[in-house]
């Protein structure tokens, strides 16, 4: 990497000035307000706000549904990425193009649409209802919404690794007598593992904070289908700023730990590549 200590290029003062001022006003100061608000609470009220049964139930639901959604995305994301990279079939380019749809489609639209699809009279719900599978207004509906929202993360992190995967390695395995399944589990899958884990963590992190696509399909019953971000919303509507800030802080800590995990994974996979 090139070192640019003394640069002849002008504009550092202006560019960094604009960037730092903008970030301070828009990001740094508001988040300081959050920490100050929680800091002024005192330990007792804070614990009471973040450990009440209704709040604990919402963490459990948010974590559990996000985990389930991210795991589903690992399985289906791998299959989708594999098929899109390896098998030519009509319509492949179209399907590849719409993978990013969940990132482009406003979450409220996704929420309203998924709820209608899976409602007892909806296009999909009417086939599930006779078998006693209720999706809308249950935790299963939340998992479906979070799977939808997390899909691009796994596919888009696995796809480039799969494209770069050199055919020679698989050929070598085949020449040495390995069957196709053996080659996949022993040669291909280990190479994809860091990307799969990164995709999993990204999908999980996104799902944890997701609001728009979930609130419609979840039904928002306290203790049952109420996610943590919705609880923050409820507290705010009651002008309980401190309670809202306290729950937000706990969620921020969860996201922070996930981000740390993602960075460690990327460092680990970078090392694996370097050591090759």
């Amino acid at each position: 990497m090139s070192i640019r200590r003394h640069s002849v290029i002008p504009g550092f003062g202006l560019a960094s000035g604009v960037a730092v001022t903008y970030l301070s006003l828009l990001v740094l100061i508001p988040f300081t307000a959050l920490f100050l608000r929680v800091g002024n609470m005192g330990w007792g009220p804070f614990m009471e706000a973040v450990l009440s049964p209704r709040v604990i139930a919402s963490y459990k639901l948010s974590l559990g549904a996000s985990l389930a959604g991210a795991l589903l995305n690992v399985v289906f994301g791998l299959v989708v990425a594999w098929v899109l990279v390896r098998y030519p079939f009509p319509g492949r380019r179209f399907l590849d193009a719409i993978i990013d749809l969940p990132l482009a489609l406003p979450t409220a639209v996704a929420g309203v649409t998924l709820t209608t699809l899976y409602s007892p009279t909806g296009w999909l719900g009417r086939f599930l209802e006779p078998y006693g599978v209720h999706v809308a207004f249950t935790p299963l509906g939340i998992v479906i919404a979070l799977t939808f929202i997390g899909l691009p993360f796994v596919v888009r992190t696995v796809q480039p690794v799969l494209t770069d995967l050199e055919g020679e390695v698989e050929e070598a395995a085949a020449c040495l007598g390995a069957g196709r399944w053996y080659t996949f589990t022993r040669v291909v899958l280990p190479t994809l593992t860091p990307a799969l884990l990164t995709g999993f963590a990204l999908a999980f992190a996104r799902a944890l904070g997701e609001y728009g696509s979930v609130v419609f399909i979840s039904g928002n019953m306290p203790m049952k289908t109420e996610i943590a971000p919705l609880l923050i919303m409820t507290k705010l509507e009651q002008y309980d700023y401190q309670g809202a800030a306290a729950i937000a802080l706990v969620m921020l800590l969860m996201s922070f730990m996930l981000l740390l995990g993602i960075n460690l994974l990327q460092w680990w996979s970078g090392k694996r590549y370097a050591s090759k």
Partner: peptide, 21 residues
Amino acid sequence: LSVSPVISGLVYVLLFGARGY
């Protein structure tokens, strides 16, 4: 990108809301 949209709204309410700073 890593913060819940609800928290993004919340921090501004904490600053400028009726009971904000």
